[in-house]
């Protein structure tokens, strides 16, 4: 699935990274712990989180995530957005909360990562 389809499914607003909307999303991972993201996020995964700081962007970049979805309508500050633009990390904001996001994506065929023991 393309990131632009994810955007529609989650009613998400694009914060930055318009040129990245055709990126492939192969799996998804939702959490608010950076260490878990570092351990479990695989390349081309979508990162769903309510954490709003620069660590999320760095982690997404380091782990080759296809993009970051901020839940609950939240948006990060300008410095974080600037950092995301510099590192080529698309950021989106959805009004939905984590459970709803995961449910919608799951119904549309997105699964957790292969590393997930489930």
């Amino acid at each position: 699935m393309k990131l632009r389809e994810v955007q529609k499914i989650l009613d998400a607003e694009l914060i930055c990274g318009e040129d990245c909307l055709d990126r492939e999303v192969r799996a998804s991972f939702a959490c608010d712990l950076i260490s878990e993201m570092l351990l479990y996020v695989t390349p081309h995964s979508l990162l769903i989180t309510s954490l709003m700081n620069a660590h999320v962007v760095h982690t997404a970049q380091v782990m080759d995530a296809s993009g970051v979805i901020f839940v609950g309508g939240k948006k990060p500050d300008k410095a974080v957005i600037k950092n995301a633009k510099m590192n080529g990390v698309p950021l989106l904001s959805t009004p939905h909360l984590i459970f709803e996001c995961c449910g919608r994506l799951f119904l549309n065929g997105i699964r957790g990562d292969k590393k997930d023991p489930g």
């Binding site: 712990l33 950076i34 260490s35 878990e36 351990l39 954490l51 700081n53 660590h55 999320v56």
Partner: peptide, 15 residues
Amino acid sequence: EMGFGAGMGLYNIKQ
């Protein structure tokens, strides 16, 4: 609050 301090740092490094 930054998303760290879950006690996974050294564990991740070891992995």
